[in-house]
Computed example of a mutant assay.
Amino acid sequence: MRVEVLREFSCVGELEAPWRELWDHASSPSVFLHPLWAVSWWNHYGQAMEPCIVLVWDESGSLAGLAPLCWSQKAPGVMGWIGDTELSDTMDFLVRSGKEVQVMGAMDRALRKLLPGEFQLDLHCVPDGSPTLEELNEMLSQGWDVSIELEEFSPRVELPASWEEFLEGLSAHHRHEIRRKMRKADKDLATGFVVVEPGDGWDRAMEHFFRLHRLSQPQKAAFMDDRRESFFCQIAEVFGREGMVRLSELRSMEGPIASSLSFVQGRTWALYNSGFDPRYRQYSPGIVLVAHTIRQAISENLTLYDFLRGREIYKYDFGASDHLLYRLRLSPRPEGKS
């Protein structure tokens, strides 16, 4: 295994093809580890960062592992992920399936050389089942001081072959409530569900999304500043061209009353963000839209619906169970210390 460290983000353009190929064959890829995500995030938030992207190449010359890391001026002495926790729901090392042990061993040796003893690697939102977590015991024995803590929950639900089968898997109460809310919205508002296609009113639909996102909660209005809006537009555009975005609307006769932005990767639908018009709160437009997107995911033969981070009650009403995310802090142990 050959290790290389990129310290100029401008070099990522030349790396995009092997990064994409690695992502396609990784143990646990997510949209947040895709090169398009890293480039979009860096374009908006990389000004105060210094990249430190660790690459591991195998004997055939293929990229076998990648650590999307950077130094931040806001936290001197701390290296973290490219992608902050407010925008990237999960992060990890990107490792080729079947080469986890070799790649993590090479990463271990490279990172110990990169990090002086008083410096720290602070890794947020590492998912349960990650090769990173599985190799922790080995890293502990190789000279690291490691702290691991439960950081977040990412509820998800497995999808059956049909919508009716999905409903039958819920409790009687939740099944009744979902059906009731969908019928009420349809009867009183003549609602319709639409997945907007790129080039077919896309810009207008994005405007609806931002408006409804800001309207739905004061916290969301504060969150969606101009820079985040620009970031959302870029990821929607670039991943839309890849066929990985689902921009969904619940429409009444007066126009959209709820909107959501989701990603589809492999056989997973990931609900990234959403909003609704509070004037229609009595019709639970956000819940009705989620129900429609789950039904859409089933119609696309997807097998997992990931609500991503956060323990909002409605996620569990749809039968979700928690997937755990961890925060890891690693510091090279001074020589001679056991």
Rank of each mutant, 00 (worst) to 15 (best):
D128E: 14
F209D: 09
G286F: 00
A221P: 05
G143S: 06
R2G: 11
T268E: 14
L215Y: 02
S331W: 11
T191K: 08
W269S: 06
D200I: 14
V5Y: 13
R179C: 09
M107N: 00
E249G: 06
D122K: 08
D188M: 05
L69W: 09
D108R: 01
F166H: 07
R295A: 15
G77K: 06
V290S: 01
M253A: 15
V146A: 08
V78H: 12
H292S: 10
W41D: 03
P127N: 09
D92A: 03
H173R: 15
W37N: 07
V39T: 12
P18Y: 01
A106F: 07
S338P: 04
Y326R: 05
E164Q: 10
E86S: 14
S260D: 07
L271C: 13
L215V: 04
L6K: 01
R112S: 12
Q102H: 14
S274L: 01
D225A: 01
P198C: 07
F32S: 08
D203V: 10
D128H: 11
R7C: 09
P116L: 06
L330W: 02
L15H: 06
Y305H: 12
K74G: 12
E14V: 07
N43M: 07
L66D: 04
L215D: 04
P285F: 02
S154E: 01
M107V: 00
L55P: 00
G77A: 03
W81L: 06
D203E: 13
G266R: 10
R281E: 15
R175Q: 11
G65C: 00
E229M: 10
S248N: 10
F153P: 05
T303M: 08
L325T: 02
R20S: 08
F318E: 02
A320T: 05
D186K: 15
N137F: 13
V5S: 14
S40R: 09
E158G: 07
H323G: 05
G105Q: 08
V5F: 13
R279T: 15
D92E: 04
F93T: 03
R228H: 09
M244R: 14
V290T: 04
I148A: 11
T293N: 08
E207A: 10
S141N: 13
F276K: 03
M107T: 00
V196M: 01
W144R: 05
V103L: 05
W57K: 03
I148V: 12
